[in-house]
Design a protein around this nucleic acid. Sequence first.
DNA 1: AAAGCCGATTGACCCAGATCAATTTTGACG
DNA 2: CGTCAAAATTGATCTGGGTCAATCGGCTTT
Lengths: 237, 237
Amino acid sequence: MRASVTTIEPNGHFCSDCAVRGFAVCASLDPEELREFEHLGRRVHFAAGETVFSEEDITTSFYNLLEGVMRLYKLLPDGRRQIVGFALPGDFLGMNISDRHNFSADAIGAVTVCQFAKAPFGRFIEDRPHLLRRINELAIRELGQARDHMVLLGRRSADEKVATFLLGWRERLFSLKGSSNTVPLPMSRQDIADYLGLTIETVSRTFTKLERHGAIEILHGGISLRDPARVEALAAA
Amino acid sequence: MRASVTTIEPNGHFCSDCAVRGFAVCASLDPEELREFEHLGRRVHFAAGETVFSEEDITTSFYNLLEGVMRLYKLLPDGRRQIVGFALPGDFLGMNISDRHNFSADAIGAVTVCQFAKAPFGRFIEDRPHLLRRINELAIRELGQARDHMVLLGRRSADEKVATFLLGWRERLFSLKGSSNTVPLPMSRQDIADYLGLTIETVSRTFTKLERHGAIEILHGGISLRDPARVEALAAA
DNA sequence: AAAGCCGATTGACCCAGATCAATTTTGACG
DNA sequence: CGTCAAAATTGATCTGGGTCAATCGGCTTT
């Protein structure tokens, strides 16, 4: 990790132009509320590899991811890591009940977030139940994803894990960038391994195997789905 | 599974006397609201092994668990099962975004739930943001538990899984029944295995090993923590 | 109390995926 | 370019936990 190049932008931005306006938490706000909301958030940039917040840190801010990809993870005392999710634009991070973050979040590549100080944000929600409802909706969606991931971690084979990951990741990118058989993978093999409960070697071997069987093609920074049906069959099994 | 002995009680109950009043969703309601709320829920009993709702069922009701223990699980097409959690009194079940349950729920032993029809419950929440906030709080707590469980499933050894499970289960029972080194385990070995991503044989062997080492004693329907410190050391590793 | 059943335990063996160990490829920088 | 360092791939070997196969033991039923 290099010297921090985090930058905070002067307040020259507008929520109404925000790339994430349509599907993030702020989707629940009307134009008038949005103008008020604008003063709460501040755009912050993080460079590749920087940590946005750490597990056990006191929660002072919430974050709305605007651009880039983040890895969300927990560490065991001996250094083993489990990635509990990847965050994409529109994801809302930082809600918890203990006043401490219960996972860490790193930028993968350059990242822009909309940062909200906890207290003012809490006050803003107070009398805006539709915003609360939206946050609740996002939490419940995440809970569903978490349960799906438990099934993957607890009961699927390495081949199934990798195939399921590729399809799931493509699906998530689909709603952001549209459909494509080319799936960019901005995260490292180690990240993928720590997400799937595997080792880096097993991930690498599985990719190679899928490629040999003509199911995928390995590209720089991603893969191409050559035979989506075959990958789906593997994931379903 | 035997013939269904589900029974619906006539409406002779009062929320104010409810065992779960202090810590369930309804904890957020004042006495007046509670009287209105009373008409929404209906107590329903389920016998051991009965299914309360199934994955992919259309969601018509929400459930507040009052008595007993439930297993919450997902099945893969080929029958592999992952238990995503055990529900205890006070847990609120059924929230989702797709209008379908995304897991199944069985009674383990006899169970009593407070059942709410979805639509009236939704209307009741509508203008009661404090209830919504309470529901959100429960969802966020569950999300934290789900992430912890991903770490267990993806990165922990069999010994660590079992030790962590015993301590976690004891901890959950603690808040209901007070502290004790005797930990009742109403679920089967198969349930424990499907919760931890192991086989029944490995769970059994691990219990035996812990007992041989003097860490626990295996009882009928539970275990006793003989050397809690040793079990904690195993779980932490 | 004998029979039957189902869950749990125990043992023998096996294999998917981990570990250990080289390469090979990629990318950053002078 | 050439040099390093980090990431990825590939191969050889090992092992934790799975699979298969008996028992064992506690309940229920008669």
